[in-house]
């Protein structure tokens, strides 16, 4: 009897091990494929010219493979969308967990999380048919499909992530700290700013970075509303072409094994490095400023 149980135990362990190994192996294979298909472009273009080249004309003859405008576009939409989504997301989280009556929080939080379920194509569609004409009219610009519109739509996509994870982090700050602060004569605002937010800073940072990394990698929205011009933006209202949009738009037209094809995969590598950096930073912050005791996220 005991023996059979031990055998089952061993079999279960082996099974879990195999499944884990398989999922990780597949991810590594994808990564390997990404590099295998991307690196050959550097036979034609130097790494420096590829990353800092200002011209992206992959189908001209001779072709230009400079993705600097695409990188700038990706960074710009991420920064601008972060400038919108971080304050809104974090402050919403603070309101929901610290200020709002519990009933309000119970209703609003699921609604915010529901926003995360909106398919990105729907958000892109909304930006295209509603926000774009509006921007065009109000600001008198040639096209409403631009950096600002894309940032706004990306912000809507990241707010639920930022808000929901921040709220969890803030919520997990032990009540004893709030009471200690209040007992010393701190107002509620002082308690929030000086105790609650610092105590949950690692969780909030993780939330911000996860939200932003969602914006960096998001494809459909930027494909639909960023405008698609592969040039360095001069203002908030210039059309741009972030990396994911470029890959998605051109992949179907790039002949397999051609330079354009390799260049798109190489763009994928750059994008991968970006999101990887985001995740490493998130991980670092989560450990470096780990919440201690009851407050652990």
């Amino acid at each position: 009897m005991a023996n059979r149980r031990q055998t089952t135990e061993k079999a279960m362990r082996a099974m879990f091990f195999v499944i884990t190994t398989a999922s990780i192996a597949i991810l590594f294979l994808i990564m390997f494929f990404l590099f295998k298909e991307g690196l050959p472009i550097f036979k034609t273009v130097s790494v420096k010219d590829f990353i800092f080249g200002k011209y992206w004309y992959p189908t001209s003859d001779p072709a230009d493979f400079g993705i600097f405008p695409l990188i700038v576009a990706s960074v710009a939409v991420t920064v601008v969308s972060g400038a919108i989504s971080v304050p809104l997301g974090v402050m919403t989280a603070i309101y929901l967990s610290e200020i709002a009556k519990p009933k309000v929080g119970e209703i609003v939080k699921p609604v915010v999380e529901l926003l995360a379920a909106l398919p990105s194509v729907v958000i892109g569609f909304f930006g295209m048919v509603l926000v774009a004409p509006f921007l065009q009219q109000v600001f008198g610009i040639p096209t409403g499909l631009n950096l600002f519109n894309a940032s706004l739509m990306l912000a809507f996509m990241s707010i639920p992530t930022i808000c929901s994870i921040s709220e969890d982090a803030i919520h997990s700050v032990p009540n004893a700290l709030r009471e200690a602060s209040a007992a010393l004569g701190a107002t509620q605002l002082q308690t929030i700013v000086r105790v609650v937010v610092p105590a949950s800073l690692s969780g909030i940072s993780t939330a911000v970075i996860l939200g932003l990394s969602r914006a960096v990698g998001e494809t459909m929205v930027v494909l639909m509303v960023a405008g698609g011009a592969a040039m360095l933006p001069g203002s908030l209202f210039d059309p741009v072409r972030p990396m994911p949009a470029s890959i998605a738009a051109e992949m179907a037209e790039a002949p397999v094994g051609g330079e354009h094809y390799y260049a798109l995969f190489a763009t994928g590598i750059v994008l991968f490095v970006f999101t990887l950096l985001f995740n490493i930073v998130a991980d670092f912050i989560a450990h470096r400023y780990a919440q201690v005791g009851d407050a652990t996220l």
Partner: peptide, 24 residues
């Protein structure tokens, strides 16, 4: 002032814990 059942120092330095009440 109040001292609680379970010690509840802020996750800050020793100095900052004591100085907190003065700051606020």
């Amino acid at each position: 002032g109040m001292v609680f059942q379970k010690p509840n120092p802020f996750p800050k330095s020793i100095f900052d814990n004591v100085a907190y009440g003065l700051w606020v």
